[in-house]
Structure formats: structure tokens, C-alpha cells
Design a protein around this nucleic acid. Structure first.
Length: 113
DNA sequence: AAGCTGACTATGG
DNA sequence: GCCATAGCCAGCT
């Protein structure tokens, strides 16, 4: 239900392919705005708790693949993103603003059930 | 129990 | 425009 992690998982799982979002957006979505770190921490937890979390679609506000080093291989994140059509340049998402997916835009966040 | 760390962000110099 | 500092929550040592 409304566990912090569950909200994050739910949002991240809703990220469409070829799209990316930022930790801050998710944090704001779950109501823990300012605690973007929790999102990253939750991602790390989900990594071994709930597979199927496209953490590679979550990058920092700069569009940088900050979490790539936490994947099985540092290149896994980039490979996955490129596989979805997202171009990566210098560990950074190209056209990040255009590919940015705002969870609040779908209102599936705080307003959820 | 107390302190540090961390896949962040915003502000200030 | 880039480097340094502060604020934030949760988990781990």
C-alpha cells in the first residue's frame, strides 16, 4: 500500500520505454520532495527486492547516469537505455528534456487511489 | 545508541 | 560557469 518504497516502485514501473525521469520528480511525486536520495536508495533496495524495476530509466536531474555504477556492469544502464532508443553521450541522456517523463503528468502519484 | 554514508538537489561564492 | 556547502530521509556499521 502506501509504503514509501512501494510508491517509488509503482512510479518507476510506470515509466514508459524510451523515457527517463529524475529522482527529484519521483520524490516530489511521493510527497518526499527534497529527499531525492531516498529514491536512489529505494532503487538500490528494489534492485534485489523487486526485479522488473527499470532503474536505468531513472537518472539525476542533470540527465547523468549517476546510478550506472550500481548495475551489474557500468555499461548496463547505458546499453539498456540505448536499446530503448535513448541516446547516451558521455554518460548523459541526449535530449533529456524531451525524453523526460514527468510522473505528475499522469497523476498517478500522491493522487493515486 | 550514535554516527556515517548515499543512485540527489538547491543555493551561495 | 564551476566548486563548495547545506538540507534531506532511510538504512547500515
Amino acid at each position: 500500500m502506501n509504503d514509501l518504497y512501494n510508491r517509488i516502485y509503482d512510479i518507476v514501473k510506470q515509466i514508459p520505454p524510451g523515457r527517463v525521469t529524475s529522482y527529484g520528480a519521483i520524490a516530489a511525486c511521493i510527497g518526499s520532495a527534497g529527499s531525492a536520495r531516498l529514491v536512489g536508495w529505494a532503487m538500490n533496495a528494489s534492485h534485489y527486492s523487486v526485479p522488473g524495476i527499470p532503474a536505468h530509466r531513472v537518472v539525476n536531474r542533470n540527465g547523468l547516469l549517476s546510478g550506472k555504477h550500481h548495475f551489474d556492469t557500468p555499461l548496463a544502464m547505458q546499453e539498456l537505455l540505448e536499446s530503448e532508443g535513448v541516446r547516451i553521450e558521455d554518460d548523459q541522456v541526449v535530449d533529456f528534456e524531451k525524453l523526460f517523463w514527468n510522473p505528475a503528468d499522469f497523476s498517478e502519484c500522491i493522487d493515486y487511489k
